Amino acid sequence: MSDNPVVHFEMPYDDSGRMREFYETAFGWTTIPLGPEMGDYVVAQAAETDTENMVTQKGAINGGFAPRSVDNDRTNLVIAVADIARAMADVEAAGGTVLGAPVEIAGVGLYVHFTDTEGNRLSLLEPTQ
């Protein structure tokens, strides 16, 4: 197994209520809107979680939804890395492009978007330990 697993997904939405109803009804997911103070982000619990909101099944991931915008118009996968600076250098050395500087998400870790050689946008996350 890789030391850099996919740990989170993100997808855009146009209508929060409609999106929540769809995923709750179709798949039984729990959705938790975080409100305007968190950019109207909606956490999606697609897998069973423990009291720390961590998945309990190996290999399972949870995710979230954010309002669709010019900068958020497609599905995004988040890859966990031990050292974000090194991972950014590795992405660029392999022909990808890092999109900006890492930002800190309080209680989560350092986060930055990148594109691969095929134009797919993904993200790196150095989790807070």
Rank of each mutant, 00 (worst) to 15 (best):
T49R: 03
V78G: 03
I79L: 10
S16G: 11
D40E: 14
N53G: 00
E10V: 04
P36R: 11
G59Q: 03
Y41M: 11
P102G: 13
E21I: 01
M38C: 10
G17A: 11
E10N: 03
T75Y: 13
V42F: 08
V103R: 11
G39W: 07
A93Q: 01
P36C: 00
H113T: 01
D73E: 09
D83C: 06
D116Y: 07
D3E: 13
L77S: 02
E48G: 07
P5Y: 09
I32L: 07
P67E: 10
V98F: 10
A82S: 14
Y13P: 06
T115Y: 00
K58L: 05
A44Q: 05
L110N: 12
F22V: 12
T97E: 15
T115N: 10
R74H: 07
V98S: 12
L125R: 04
E24P: 03
P127G: 01
F22C: 08
T49D: 00
I61Q: 03
I32V: 12
P102E: 12
W29S: 06
V91G: 02
Y23V: 11
P127E: 08
G100L: 14
L99T: 01
L77E: 01
G28E: 08
I105P: 03
A60V: 06
A85M: 08
A101Q: 13
D71W: 00
T56C: 00
M88V: 02
S123T: 10
A82L: 05
G119M: 07
T117M: 14
N76H: 03
E126Y: 01
H113I: 01
P102F: 14
Q45P: 00
N76E: 09
G119F: 06
G63S: 06
V43P: 04
M19Q: 09
G28H: 12
E126N: 02
T30W: 05
D3W: 05
Q57D: 06
M54K: 13
A46G: 10
E24C: 05
P33T: 10
P102V: 12
V81C: 08
M88F: 00
V91I: 14
A26T: 15
A47R: 12
P36K: 14
G100T: 06
V42I: 15
V103A: 10
N62K: 11
V98D: 15
E104T: 15
A47F: 14
E37P: 03
G119D: 06
T128K: 03
V91S: 04
V81H: 12
T49I: 14
R86T: 15
G63N: 05
H8A: 05
L125A: 02
T25R: 09
R18T: 08
V42Q: 11
A46I: 04
A47V: 08
L110R: 15
P12W: 09
V91Q: 05
A101W: 01
V7I: 15
N53K: 06
A46F: 04
